[in-house]
Amino acid sequence: MSTLNIVNKSPFEKRTLEQCLKRIGEGDSVLLIEDATISAVNGTAYANLLLEASKQSRLYVLQPDLQARGFAEKPLLDPVEAVDYAGFVDLVVKHERVHSWL
């Protein structure tokens, strides 16, 4: 039973990322899109939170959204995998349900 959780808010502005991570577990995945993509980059105050979450969940970031914000060349956190739009679709198909944390 696994859920693809989608987060689209910057953790510096809204607590959505923390709120989501607190309530997921083994087998669930998190896809960072839009303003949430900046948390996938190395060296932010939220790195540890994501590293902790990666112990039981898979983490993904939507590459075009990251690129748009000027981070295409910056190293990502180790456990975060970048996906393109086709990869986004694959993730949706692969999981039993999608929970979009608006």
């Binding site: 039973m1 859920t3 309530r23 997921i24 577990g25 669930d28 349900r97 929970h99 944390w101």
Partner: peptide, 18 residues
């Protein structure tokens, strides 16, 4: 409890967040 939320989500087919 917070730790029971995942089990609740897993029981449902569609999850809509508002």
């Amino acid at each position: 409890a917070s730790k029971e939320v995942k089990a609740l989500i897993d029981q449902n087919d569609v999850v809509l967040s508002f």
